[in-house]
């Protein structure tokens, strides 16, 4: 029997965001937007969902006079991502 894939991560954009953050310490909103090709509105919604689940930490700060949103993966997010990849592997194994 196949394990259930975390529904929060099993979405293209949320998975892309988590994969981006996994190998970096933190990333700014414009960078994530550029890399994922998402619209600002949709990305904001998905970041809020990940943040509400405790998978990422969103810090709103200022860079000079400009507002700046910084995202970081949390230990909970890291664990969830690891579990997701583990579960994903079972789907990909040849039967």
């Amino acid at each position: 029997m196949f394990p259930t894939l975390d529904p929060l991560l099993h979405s293209e954009l949320r998975l892309a965001v988590m994969s981006l953050l996994i190998s970096t310490e933190e990333a700014e909103f414009p960078y994530i937007k550029e890399q994922t090709g998402a619209t600002a509105g949709n990305l904001s919604v998905q970041l809020d969902k990940l943040s509400a689940a405790g998978y990422i930490e969103v810090e709103k700060t200022f860079k000079g006079k400009k507002p700046c949103t910084i995202c970081r993966i949390t230990p909970t997010g890291l664990h969830a991502f690891e579990q997701y990849v583990k579960a994903l592997k079972t789907y990909l194994k040849p039967r």
């Binding site: 979405s11 998975l15 890399q35 509105g41 994903l88 990909l92």
Partner: peptide
């Protein structure tokens, strides 16, 4: 506002592709 990311059906292969692509890009 809708985005292709939210609606596309996600297969295991596609998931793996996204993970690989994003990790490689950020590196």
């Amino acid at each position: 506002e809708e985005n292709k990311h939210a609606t596309a059906e996600l297969t295991a292969e596609r998931s793996l592709e996204i993970i690989t692509q994003q990790i490689e890009q950020s590196r």
